[in-house]
Design a protein around this nucleic acid. Sequence first.
DNA 1: CCGAACGGGGAACTGAGTGCCATCTTGATC
DNA 2: GATCAAGATGGCACTCAGTTCCCCGTTCGG
Lengths: 228, 228
Amino acid sequence: MRDSLVAAAFRLFLERGYEQTTVDDIVALAGVGRRSFFRYFPSKEDVVFPDHERCLAEMTAFLGDGDDAADPVARVCDAARLVLGMYAENPTFSVQRYRLTRQVPGLRAYELSVVWRYERALAEYLRGRFAGRPDGTLRADVVAAAVVAAHNNGLRSWLRSDGQEDAGAAVDHALAHVRLVFAPDPPAAPAPAAGDTEEDVVVVVSRRGAPMWRVVQEIETALGRTSD
Amino acid sequence: MRDSLVAAAFRLFLERGYEQTTVDDIVALAGVGRRSFFRYFPSKEDVVFPDHERCLAEMTAFLGDGDDAADPVARVCDAARLVLGMYAENPTFSVQRYRLTRQVPGLRAYELSVVWRYERALAEYLRGRFAGRPDGTLRADVVAAAVVAAHNNGLRSWLRSDGQEDAGAAVDHALAHVRLVFAPDPPAAPAPAAGDTEEDVVVVVSRRGAPMWRVVQEIETALGRTSD
DNA sequence: CCGAACGGGGAACTGAGTGCCATCTTGATC
DNA sequence: GATCAAGATGGCACTCAGTTCCCCGTTCGG
């Protein structure tokens, strides 16, 4: 029922446009009653994003499962990848929807409210993890916004390629960028080893032609910690 | 006319709630015709944000005035402060509107689309400034999102205080946080001196206590490239 | 005095979303 | 197999936002 409504809706949306399609048109094509449409989708916009509610629930469950051992920023990046997974499940559908939302202001506004709820979920999680730290809520909001922006940047680049590129790679690359920016995770203390407690500097030598990640790796080793 | 409609609308919104107030109620109280309402405000939501259109125009003008000498991140922070200025012009109005938007989902969605347009303006500016740099558009999107998130964090904290706190201080503090994260000041660059072009190694010295991102930044500068 | 331009007002229409109730299916119980 | 309860569906009428079309009064130039 839900599926038949979504199928009918998208056939009409692609055929004659979103605003030129009325709910009556959709239910006529799907062969169901008008009232049933609004039972499954609280609004006409919802039929365009039929699986976000489920995905949002998955994300909150993922963030609330108590597995708080890892770096919080890494955790929200993984949470963001859940959304990418939902898009990647149905590439053609996602690309069609992307074209729709790009040119219909009403759908763009609706998508913003959906994205906002994801961002709130991430920010709430980070606020919990950053609790007590000075400017914890500020940092939580900023990191959440940055993660969402990076995710969307990678996602859109994939969508613009009609699903040809590697979605995971694009988003991973974007999220890595954010993690590099916010990576320090200050409390990952310098933890001076026994004996060199007085040392204040560390010297690293690297071949100039070495790839950046290799250099970073050497730095991390020298400093006795990781950027994660 | 515009002002009388806004005044009538807010009287009713605060009295009986946004959704319980129809456009007919507003025009009846303002003593104008229903058609005139929609001449001044394309939708019922617009009457709640009567000055954002003007502010957005100011921001795009500010970003497009060709004064690109300063640090791009600082520039978008200044642009964000323009929005704060608009809120601070009418504290009581801003606080009332904040209470409304917080509890009416439709208004929150509308506000999101407004904020999105500000963010797009900032991101477009940064894309121009970061053009050519690898991952320039990604960085532009992320910085814009972070700046907006920080601005909104400070703004909301001020609004929650009923306009009692210092709005400028709250937002300045939040924006300073973001500027610190995103390449605040170019680190002292141990640029290779003339004559050592053939050298294959580079030596980097860093304080052990420095945050990882700071170290990475210095490495990048030393190697004469970025991780982007 | 006339008429064109224009800002405002009103009536009627479309379409989204809701409330209420009738109907139909399903499945458990006796 | 009959019956009843519960849930799913359809139909109808209603509210309200937003639009279209047209009318009216004012103003200003000829």
